[in-house]
Design a binder for these strands. Structure first.
Lengths: 187, 187
DNA sequence: TGTACATCAGTGAACGCGCGTTCACTGATGTAC
DNA sequence: TGTACATCAGTGAACGCGCGTTCACTGATGTAC
């Protein structure tokens, strides 16, 4: 315990930072940005809260980095799908998106559905990170073009249906209705 | 100031409670449930925070009541629209829903889009209130039937598109893209 | 209708607690020679 | 390669502050007679 408390190499520090951001990206989606303290995040990576400010200027700076990280993971996943199957990537992403697993798994779920309400009431630093992620998501979806129709329009419409369907499924409590929502929106 | 501090009649007390709930319904959508304190709400209706517990058992009880009130207002509005124009109520509600005004007005906006993420991380008391409101909304939309198609399915799909479109429009920062999202989803 | 008293809506001070942030300190790391 | 020293990642205690909640108190309301 004590020998861990000394200074670490630059590589170690960079790894610490990565872990802090990854932990925050999960925790803020699971519990909400306000219900996750700096100490919670640091404890999650096995550190004490005091060292936090060696990595970030403020909690808001961490939130912004965590939101960017959440989008990075999602877009990386979509990008891999597109390499494997350029034609069906968007449909298969939507299929995985509209599942009971995604409804229940807040921690690694869609950051647009999970964090837009929070970001809209937060500082520019936080809402800018969400806006950048949302823009990148729309662009990625436009690229993963479905056959026919205006690319941007159809990307926006697909994303809206997915985000709204997930939100509505999370809003209701009756499992049967939740399932009906997912099935209805999946087409 | 001082003469206001004494006991009020039962009618006055009921009116106070109504005002507290109405203020909370606005404030929690505007700032988020965690960023609104009991003292903020009481101050908004011109009272001190000490009297709060004469009306509610806890802050969570107020949040539940405020969520129910937000839905009540929305459903009342939809109900009025349906009386005026049974055929076009759903379309005209959707048209008003997908506007820049609604994107910017969090305080009196859709509680599903604005509060589902918060409710999903809250106590049963709070999430149950949201679930009840969401169910009532789906039912009202099913009743306001669009011509043709399965009533429930098409209600769910319309609502999903609206909620997702509003969320996506709130997520982005570019006004032109925000406008493009609203237009794309409005059909 | 009038009187005496219990009730209880609202006040304002106080409570404990957790939060974001700061700070003095430690000692391995990294660098200048 | 070896030595001396500055750096800085991480520790753990401490800070002010705001929060949800409690409490003793006030005096008009509401009721029993």
């Amino acid at each position: 315990m004590e020998e861990i408390s000394m200074r670490r190499s630059k590589a170690d520090a960079a790894e610490s930072r990565r872990q802090i951001v990854a932990a925050a990206a999960r925790l803020i989606r699971e519990r909400g940005p306000e219900r996750v303290s700096v100490a919670d995040v640091m404890q999650d990576v096995g550190m004490t809260h005091g060292g936090f400010y060696k990595h970030f200027e403020s909690k808001d700076a961490l939130l912004a980095a965590a939101i960017s990280e959440a989008f990075r993971e999602k877009l990386e996943f979509l990008s891999n799908e597109m390499e494997k199957d350029p034609e069906g990537a968007r449909a298969s992403y939507a299929k995985g998106y509209l599942t009971i697993e995604h409804v229940e798994d807040l921690a690694t779920g869609c950051p647009i559905a999970g964090l837009t309400a929070d970001a809209a009431r937060s500082s520019p630093q936080v809402s800018d990170a969400l806006a950048a992620g949302a823009l990148a998501t729309i662009k990625a979806f436009s690229r993963a073009e479905a056959p026919g129709g205006s690319s941007l329009r159809s990307a926006i419409r697909s994303l809206s249906m997915m985000i709204g369907g997930l939100t509505l499924a999370r809003a209701v409590s009756d499992p049967a209705l939740c399932d009906e929502i997912l099935r209805s929106v999946r087409e």
